[in-house]
């Protein structure tokens, strides 16, 4: 089994290299091949180094005079290359946990360490850099800029990374190719379907080659078929780029694709 997995990994790595070497046809073929072999794979155990670590993480919001404890004493670890799903009922704190890991918010107590950096100690500017370089966000509602065409939308994270125009243009084209949107580069978001928009959002999240993708209900706004396709795309990305994927979801089918499911209840890790 282990050898089979290694073989798949090599195939996908080859496909990825081909994408970045402009051998697009070969890359697409390799991706298709890889994705076929990835389907139906069993859950695997995390073995890589720890990428995300939270220690006794708590987050309390003040709503009016009321204090709401969104997270209570959460300590988790996520390893490099892992595909983890945060599940749980609404209000259980899964999105809050995702945002704290993404450096979008500061915890009330505890630590968040991502890629060796203690996010609670980073300045606003350093946090921006961290989000830009280390994290790729995928949102339920895609959040593509409606007046920019697909190609420009994909390059937005690279704009904030000050990547030069040529490099980011090439990267956007390659990623669009990789997510099956090469023929939609000149299109505006309104001319794309929901599934295509979410694939575009994933491509955008990958543009700065992040180590970690944080996806908040990425299939929540898609039909079942498109939802499955998106999850498969996450799996491919994880396999090809070695990217760690963390998905917040209500959908058991999505969770079933993850290597590991972290269930939250009332702000605490239940499983």
């Amino acid at each position: 089994m282990c050898n089979v997995l290694e073989s798949e990994k090599r195939k996908k790595a080859t496909a990825f290299l081909k994408v970045f070497n402009n051998d697009l046809e070969a890359a697409i073929a390799a991706l298709k091949d890889a994705s076929l072999t990835a389907r139906g794979k069993p859950r695997r155990k995390a073995t890589g180094p720890v990428l995300v670590k939270t220690e006794n993480l708590s987050k309390t919001y003040k709503i009016g005079r009321q204090r709401v404890e969104a997270l209570k004493d959460v300590s988790i670890e996520i390893h490099e290359g892992e595909f983890v799903a945060f599940t749980g009922p609404s209000g259980s704190g899964k999105s809050t946990l995702l945002q704290l890991i993404g450096g979008l918010d500061k915890p009330s107590e505890g630590k968040v360490i991502v890629d060796g950096q203690d996010l609670t100690r980073l300045s606003d500017r350093a946090l921006s850099n961290f989000r830009n370089k280390t994290i790729g966000f995928v949102f339920q509602f895609f959040y593509l800029q409606p007046f920019l065409n697909l190609k420009t939308n994909l390059t937005v994270p690279a704009i904030f990374a000050r990547t030069n125009r040529k490099e980011r243009s090439e990267a956007a084209e390659k990623l669009a190719e990789a997510v099956g949107l090469a023929d939609r580069l000149k299109h505006l978001p309104k001319e794309l379907s929901g599934g295509q928009m979410q694939r575009a959002a994933i491509a955008r999240a990958l543009l700065n080659k992040p180590k970690l993708i944080l996806a908040d209900e990425p299939t929540g706004n898609l039909d079942s078929k498109n939802g499955t396709a998106i999850i498969e795309l996450f799996e491919k990305v994880r396999e090809e780029f070695g990217t760690t994927i963390v998905v917040v979801t209500h959908d058991p089918k999505v969770a079933s694709h993850a290597d590991r499911e972290i269930v939250l209840e009332d702000g605490r890790v239940a499983v």
């Binding site: 959040y143 800029q145 700065n208």
Partner: peptide, 16 residues
């Protein structure tokens, strides 16, 4: 505001 928030999430600094 939402777009600003998205830009901030994907790495824009306040100055940007």
């Amino acid at each position: 505001r939402r777009e600003t928030a998205v830009f901030r999430a994907i790495g824009a600094k306040r100055l940007d």
